[in-house]
Design a protein around this nucleic acid. Structure first.
Length: 793
DNA sequence: GATTTTACGTA
DNA sequence: CGTACGTAAAATCT
């Protein structure tokens, strides 16, 4: 049936999608599929969240009949879907007439086909959220966003679509195009750039600028190729730095240095621009106005944070990210101008939402993280080479043994070849990956989990552990030993204050730093937060220094105990506080757990009992299931289930806490950690979301605690230098011989009160000292006197 | 050659 | 149905 256009004829918003589906074809109305994963229901969800109802919108499709198999390509001559067949051409004409007739103020293009029909463009991911001119009916505004069906396939596009619809609502009050008031000067001469800067320096009314650089990342140090600055959202300038006369370039850097002394500066990802300017030109940006990346992270921790995305939320500028390759000078000048505009919007938004405190806290980490990136950590090449040789020999030997056992050459790092070998040639029971949902297809796997499981089930076959060891060792070599060092034998990492990961469900980033390859100094394995213990000894202290490690003791467990109101545990933590490690045994919570679980006395607790207690507590704190517990403890599923039941009987507060978190999530899907950091969860409502919620408060509170302490050390203790950050441990370089003094100083900075409801508590700190990261000696110190003097408890 | 999948290291 | 993070090698796409 021909699908009609529905909705009030005087609607200000018109939604245009691709083509009718089955239900729509039957009823002749768009978006009638209201089943659980139907596009109609998703559309309603999006509209409701955005603050508008379906009844207020005109809704239609480009194609008016369902194509076979719902494949829109049916209506096109070509595979690329650019040349419409006559039928589709007719429908597009119809659409044109309807737009002219109903005259909406804003047209929302839902998905690629609508976007193409209205504007000739195809890149929804790049253009969504921007106001585009309509080519079908000139003069009309088009706002592209995702198709509801696409949202069902990729849930992370749900909330961006909501934001887009909100923008459409703002644009529905008038059909007028936003006026682009910007005066952009891309690619001016260095002389003009200098005079622009000089004028700015003279203009005391303007105290803020934004800055953006483009670099040629191939060289260490990231050579700057383009420099752009803006003095308002509407005035920006950029210049090319290659092929400059030496004197001109010098002049430019000199004036820039003066400008940066005078003004407060906004940047998107300040550690990079600031780092490159400092590293290459010794120009220091001292007055940060705003890092728009950090601000976006504090406001929307689960949304994309690239400048193009944030601009689509905050501004009414034309899209420009597509120009990066062809016109980098224009691209850069837009970056600079739009960063200024975004900073103004986000500044207000941070105040409005109460996220300013979190922003201030995060931005205070910039200098610390940048210092550690540029400084790097020292690698002892002799130890590195020894390790490499040793492990390489092991790998060769293991490969030989495997070849002999198997009788042919197999690449054990190839999942495909391993599947063939284990499940086809050798006929072992096929192992499947654990699925997120019962609806997901079963996926065959040969990962370490599967191999250990086979090893347990099939007892005496040495092949599994051999493969496991072989894979482990080749991983050690390829990822952690086979690395390029700087000329000073250092490796460098970029500590990312806002995290950077992008997984299927979108970005998370609970406020812990991540660590990734440094673009400025591309030496080492990149991530320094996942170096295996086995190779840590190759990282050493520079001559004359010791490495001092300070880690929070049982940090997440302490937080969980307080969140649950588990006073037996809380008392144990309190009683153990400040004690030397050697005297803590009576307050060992894992032994306590074991005693409770097995109904035994202290003297009967074996290391295995303790291990079970520890694993159980850890797994259950984050709502792990019996299957995972079974593999972790190498026991049967039934046993794991039994242990879980007993654990929950002995710890009834845990399930109550789960329930509380779920209730809290129901209120606006937002949780606050113990330092007030908010996080809005955008994932699909269900157990995955809940589990993420359970881990949020402990994980992010510990992250903030550590970073708070690290900042305090950085700003207050000038003779200790930050060396590494490992989420709940910080490492500093300490001048040899001052270790005792250093530990006292660190303890003063790190013992920080945490408040929950009316209670205040503290998390203890342990210290280790060593000449290398792998050989640290635990310090067995009684801190009780010291604590009494310094903290009064 | 670029992108996706699989696997695996840390807290 | 632990969570969070980043990277290397293999597989796959174009």
């Amino acid at each position: 049936m021909l699908c009609r256009t529905v909705g009030p004829l005087d609607a200000k918003i018109m939604l245009i999608a691709e083509a009718p589906g089955k239900e729509e074809d039957l009823t002749g109305e768009p978006f009638m599929n209201m089943r659980a994963f139907g596009a109609g229901r998703t559309l309603n969800q999006v509209l409701t969240q955005a603050g508008i109802s379906r009844a207020e919108c005109l809704i239609t499709n480009v194609a008016r009949e369902r194509p076979p198999g719902n494949k829109i390509s049916f209506y096109f001559e070509d595979k690329g879907c650019t040349i419409p067949k006559p039928k589709l051409r007719e429908w597009i004409e119809l659409l044109k007439k309807e737009i002219i007739l109903y005259n909406p103020n804003i047209i929302v293009a839902l998905g690629v086909t609508a976007l193409w029909a209205l504007t000739g463009e195809k890149k929804v991911g790049e253009l969504r959220g921007y106001i585009l001119p309509c080519s079908l009916v000139p003069g009309k505004k088009v706002l592209p966003t995702y198709h509801p069906q696409h949202i069902n396939n990729e849930w992370k596009t749900f909330y961006p679509t909501v934001m887009d619809i909100r923008k459409a609502i703002r644009h529905s009050f008038s059909g007028e195009f936003p006026v682009d008031k910007r005066i952009l000067l891309p690619g001016v001469s260095s002389a003009s750039f200098v005079s622009y800067m000089e004028e700015l320096i003279q203009d005391k009314n303007k105290d803020r600028i934004s800055l953006d650089i483009e670099t040629n990342g191939k060289l260490p140090g990231s050579h700057i190729t383009i420099l752009g600055i803006a003095s308002s959202p509407y005035s920006a300038i950029s210049t090319q730095l290659s092929n400059l006369q030496e004197a001109d370039e010098l002049r430019l850097w000199q004036i820039l240095a003066v400008l940066l002394k005078e003004k407060r500066v906004a940047m998107h990802n300040a550690p990079f621009d600031k780092g490159v300017l400092w590293y290459n030109h010794h120009i220091l940006i001292e007055n940060l106005w705003m890092d728009t990346l950090i601000a976006a992270h504090c406001l929307w921790p689960e949304l994309p944070r690239d400048l193009g995305f944030v601009a689509s939320l905050c501004l009414d500028v034309p899209p420009w990210k597509g120009t990066a390759r062809n016109d980098s000078l224009y691209y850069n000048v837009c970056d600079a101008a739009n960063t200024f505009g975004i900073a103004e919007v986000l500044e207000a938004e941070l105040l409005r939402t109460g996220s300013k405190k979190t922003y201030d806290f995060e931005s205070k980490s910039i200098d610390l993280s940048l210092m550690m990136q540029l400084q790097g950590i020292k690698c002892g090449i002799t130890i590195r080479d020894e390790l490499k040789k040793e492990i390489q020999e092991k790998v060769i030997e293991q490969k030989k043994k495997l070849d002999l056992l198997v009788g042919k050459d197999v690449n054990y790092n190839s999942p495909k070849q391993l599947q063939q070998l284990l499940y086809m040639d050798l006929g072992f029971p096929v192992q499947y990956k654990r699925r997120k949902s019962i609806n997901n297809p079963k996926v065959v796997t040969t990962d370490s989990n599967a191999l250990s499981k086979l090893s347990i089930e099939l007892g005496d076959n040495p092949i599994f552990n051999l493969i496991l060891d072989y894979k482990k060792n080749s991983k050690l070599i390829s990822s952690f030993l086979d690395i390029t060092l700087s000329s000073n034998d250092t490796v460098h990492t970029s500590y990312n204050i806002t995290g950077t990961s992008t997984d299927d469900e979108g970005r998370k980033s609970f406020g812990r730093w991540s660590s990734s390859a440094s673009i400025i100094l591309p030496y080492g394995s990149g991530n320094l937060q996942n170096i295996p213990k086995a190779v840590r000894k190759m990282y050493i202290a520079p001559e004359g220094y010791s490495i001092l490690q300070a880690d929070y003791v049982q940090a997440e467990a302490v937080i969980v105990a307080h969140l649950c109101g588990d006073y037996k545990l809380i008392d144990m933590f309190k009683n153990a506080f400040g004690l030397p490690k050697s005297q803590r045994r009576p307050y060992d919570i894992h032994i306590l757990t074991a005693k409770e679980m097995f109904g035994i006395t202290d003297d009967k607790v074996t290391p295995r009992h303790r291990e079970i207690g520890k694993t159980l507590r850890h797994a259950l704190s984050y709502a792990a299931g019996p299957a995972v517990l079974a593999t972790k403890l190498k026991i049967k599923l039934a046993q794991a289930k039994q242990l879980m039941t007993i654990y929950h009987q002995k710890n009834p507060q845990l399930k109550m806490w789960y329930t509380r978190i779920q209730q809290d999530l129901q209120q606006g899907r937002t949780l606050y950690n113990l330092f007030g950091r908010s996080h809005k969860f955008l994932a699909w409502w269900g157990d995955d979301l809940f589990r993420s919620g359970y881990s949020y408060i402990p994980q992010s509170t510990v992250g903030d605690l550590l970073n708070k302490a690290f900042q305090d050390v950085y700003y207050n203790v000038d003779w200790l230098t930050g060396y590494l950050q490992l989420h709940d441990a910080l490492y500093v370089l300490c001048p040899e011989g001052r270790e005792q003094e250093a530990m006292k100083e660190l303890r003063k900075q790190m013992i920080i009160p945490i408040t929950l409801r009316d209670e205040t508590f503290y998390i203890d700190v342990d210290f280790s000292v060593g000449k290398s990261w792998g050989e640290m000696e635990e310090q067995d110190i009684d801190w009780r006197e010291f604590d009494k003097e310094n903290f009064g408890f």
